[in-house]
């Protein structure tokens, strides 16, 4: 994934807390977020700024979310729109899709689910031609076959190790704490100390033949980070 030009997401949602976590979370994932509180200001933003995707709440203080969606579609835009609804009624879903929304998510949704939907929508819209292979230096990671090779040689990894490597390769230079690595790779409700992360990292380094100065660096008193350039340079 090339990040030279960030993907812009317009979030039209009136609840400040939801907007807050959406912005923080999406920014963290590498998206640029434009939060708007009302349907009117959302439409203004849509008209003025080129965005790649809209996350749209159904209940807005001024204009109904469906209406906003219909307005955008009526103006010939094919922009992917993801609706957030509270009501589970089928009629609402139908209405959502009828009004031109591409997908909907029922509150309370999981953020991971939201990310998956966003990725799917962006792929479908052709905005992102996400390669199923991540390649950094001589490391290659195939997301579909879940195979890893270094300098053309196959390396057999456990799912946890694979998850760690994928995370590092997706976000090079980002410093992850042990907690974050634990949460993202082993799940939010994993019980047990963060020491397990050190164990997995050391296994991963061994399998990759990663010798100091490491590809996967230990950042003292914080966690780990992935520095690809350093090894080549």
């Amino acid at each position: 994934m090339k990040n030279d030009d960030k993907i812009k997401i317009l979030v039209i949602e009136d609840d400040p807390v939801i907007t807050e976590f959406l912005s923080t979370g999406l920014k963290y994932e590498g998206y640029e977020v434009l939060p708007r509180i009302t349907g009117k200001s959302g439409l203004d933003a849509w008209q003025q700024i080129r965005v790649d995707l809209i996350i749209l709440d159904v209940m807005l203080p001024d204009i109904d979310g469906f209406e906003v969606c219909r307005y955008i579609r009526d103006h010939g835009s094919e922009l992917p729109i993801l609706m957030l609804t509270v009501r589970k009624e089928v009629s609402d879903r139908v209405k959502g899709l009828d009004s031109g929304a591409d997908d909907y998510l029922t509150k309370p949704f999981s953020f991971e689910e939201l990310l998956a939907r966003i990725r799917a929508l962006l792929r479908r819209g052709g905005k992102v031609t996400e390669n199923s292979r991540l390649r950094v230096e001589n490391l290659e990671l195939d997301l579909e076959t879940r195979e890893v090779s270094r300098s053309g040689e196959r390396v057999a990894l456990t799912p946890t190790e694979f998850g760690l490597l994928e995370l590092f390769m997706r976000y090079p230079h980002r410093v992850f704490t042990r907690e974050t690595l634990l949460n993202r790779v082993l799940g939010y409700d994993f019980d047990g100390g963060t020491n397990i992360v050190d164990v997995h990292i050391s296994h991963l380094r061994n399998k990759l033949g990663d010798r100091p100065p490491h590809l996967i660096r230990t950042i003292y008193a914080v966690g780990y980070a992935f520095y690809p350039e350093e090894t080549s340079g």
Partner: peptide
Amino acid sequence: AHELMTPLTGLRGSLEVLLRGAQD
């Protein structure tokens, strides 16, 4: 239930975002 869902969405999403790395 509907009224409960909005704050719960905020809580769940915020927690998830925190756990996924915003805690750093």
